[in-house]
């Protein structure tokens, strides 16, 4: 049973470099089972999804990307992807709501579209999050659109996520009346409801963990629902606690390792043993630092999931592996 079965919109944020696009993609794969339709969107113009799934750059159009991770009965769903850019979102919005006719063309000709999407304060974020909202709730004017069981947003980083979702606040100060105001209020209703969850990706390092804590506080202040914490790129845990302690103290049993390495069919040299012992010590030191950060995270009252560091990099196969781990841990 998923911890987030009521959630329709999964927002995945995190400090830069923590791998939030990887986590968002893996989460989408994990959610897509038993014939479920899942949409994963990106809004930062980086085409990270296309790279992640090894497909051509995505257009402003929902595209079938791949099948999800099958469940025990082999039931798979479908993952779709959408690359949202502000200009296309604005044009779509205008044509959906207003029959502007000549005025629509004039808007573009006079540079209003560019103005609105690049410089008008807050408008850019509203357009991007507005399209995400539309993908979740589906507008009746968007005929024939797929209804998604879940939407995953590869969101802006932790430092900007609250502003990004807090559209009421951003626009409220500028557009005090009118349809934009009404619509941003409706959007806020979804974003602040239990049908949305903002997940935070972190590493077991001090700064990302601190940023996660700050991010959670900020989300809570804005009334936005905090989802889970995904601890990414966790070092392998192949050594027992006792061995780790011994490695840190420099008291690992050299003759035992020598015998065991021999038993592994590997030729033992002093250089090899020295190397392994030194690597063990370095690893143990880093593990101790990780454990300290893990303890900090455990102190936050939020469900936590862990994903291992993929030494060979994250390819499509690795994404499915990560998806499996998320599902095992109950995130999807």
């Amino acid at each position: 049973m998923s911890d987030w079965s009521k959630v329709r919109l999964h927002v995945v944020t995190g400090k830069g470099g923590t791998g939030k696009s990887t986590v968002a993609s893996a989460l989408a794969l994990a959610l897509a089972h038993q014939g479920k339709n899942v949409l994963v969107c990106e809004v930062e113009g980086r085409q990270g999804l296309a790279r992640m799934f090894d497909v051509d750059p995505l257009p402003y159009q929902e595209r079938r990307l791949t099948t999800g991770l099958p469940d025990e009965d082999g039931g798979r769903g479908i993952v779709h992807a959408l690359h949202i850019d502000a200009e296309s979102a604005l044009l779509e919005y205008l044509s959906m709501y207003y029959r502007l006719g000549r005025a629509g063309k004039a808007l573009d000709r006079f540079g209003v579209i560019e103005f609105a999407t690049t410089i008008a304060p807050g408008v850019r974020d509203v357009l991007l999050s507005g399209k995400v909202y539309e993908a979740v709730e589906r507008n009746s004017r968007n005929k024939g659109a797929i209804r998604y069981d879940a939407v995953v947003l590869d969101a802006p980083p932790t430092g900007r996520i609250t502003n990004f979702l807090n559209v009421g606040g951003e626009v409220g100060g500028l557009a005090k009346v009118g349809p934009i105001k009404t619509q941003s209020d409706t959007m806020m209703k979804l974003f602040q409801s239990p049908r949305t969850a903002v997940h935070l990706v972190t590493l077991l390092e001090e700064m990302p963990v601190q940023e996660t804590i700050d991010g959670i506080a900020e989300l809570e202040r804005a009334g936005l629902p905090v989802g889970g914490i995904v601890v990414n790129m966790v070092r392998p845990r192949d050594l027992s606690d006792d061995d780790l302690a011994a490695a840190r103290a420099g008291t690992l049993d050299r003759s035992r390792i020598e015998a065991e390495v021999k038993a592994a069919g590997i030729e033992v040299t002093d250089a090899l043993l020295d190397g392994l012992l030194h690597e063990a010590r370095e690893h143990a030191e880093r593990r101790a630092l990780e454990d300290a950060q893990r303890a900090v995270i455990a102190g936050i009252d939020v469900p936590t999931y862990e994903l291992p560091r993929m030494a060979g990099g994250v390819d499509l196969g690795a994404l499915y592996e990560l998806a499996g781990l998320l599902r095992e841990q109950g995130m999807a």
Binding site: P236, D238, L239, S240, D243, L252, D253, R256, I257, A259, E260, V261, A263, A264, I266, G275, L276, E279, A280, H283, R309, A311
Partner: peptide
Amino acid sequence: NGTLAAGLLRLHAD
């Protein structure tokens, strides 16, 4: 057998 060495070798490979 050899859980310690297995762990160390895996770390090394990683």
